[in-house]
Amino acid sequence: MTRANLLLLLALAVAVPLSLLAGRVWLDPWATPNAAVILGELRLPRALLAVAIGGGLGAAGAAMQGYLRNPLADPGLFGIAPGAALGAVLSLLLGLASGWWLPLFALAGAAGAMGLLALIAGRAGGIALFTLAGMMIASLAGALTSLAISLAPNAFATSEIVVWLMGALTDRGWPDVALAAPPTLAGIALLRLAGRGLDALTLGEVAARSLGVSPARLQALVVAGVGLTVGSGVAVAGVIGFVGLMVPHLVRPLTDRRPSSLIVPSALAGALLVLLADCVCRILPLATELRLGIALSLLGAPFFLHLLLKMRREVA
């Protein structure tokens, strides 16, 4: 295990138990009434969900940046997250948001986006066409989501959709963990399998092929891995942006900068970031709890700006 992984794992091991105690009301396991219920039924699943979703987004971001050889790439670029969001919004619009329907619709949306991507990009595995296809799907899904919102039958439905789109981990329970964790773990495993191909891509597409990498297989691994991690994340928590962009950046200096070395530490750091951000959302004394998606975007936008300014200095 590398030093970065060890450090991040230790940090998580400290942060998860602490996060269980954090909230508008700080919890004392021995004094608070119903502490066991609050911990076991509310805060533990919520913490595990934050870890799963953050881990998935971090790993997906690292893989996307490696695949596109671009440090500004984000899992949203492939249109998978917008596709999942569209699915979820449709279920809300149809009044099918209860129980498993919303996550199932979201997963179907993610799968639909992945299928479209595969169809358009074809078998050659070229990256430029693939990226354009992803951006097209993302903007199409965004437009259809807006259409769905405008078609909402009443103001309540509209606000329900809009609030859901902001992303949150409020009132999630064990069923959500059961839904999100297995696909996320499977997705991270697939992205790890893609690691060697991503390393080879460091030298460009043609050189990667000359090293025996199959572009079609690599693309399939990346799409399936990003689809599983991001799709299941959106299915249970809504759209949570910027994690996939920020985390690989923060982690990269701790690694040897090979894309394959970045995937697991990014998963760990993503888990840590979402967990901490969710704690901040719970602790802040606002009238209503700050939505996690908004909190991370508020954090992410200045981070992005900082990156751009740094790049501008390097260019100058």
Partner: peptide, 18 residues
């Protein structure tokens, strides 16, 4: 092209991928 700022040793080791 070298997309990421690898060390020279890790760059050369990419040749072992096959």
């Amino acid at each position: 092209e070298i997309a990421w700022d690898l060390s020279v040793r890790n760059l050369v080791a990419l040749g072992r991928l096959p």
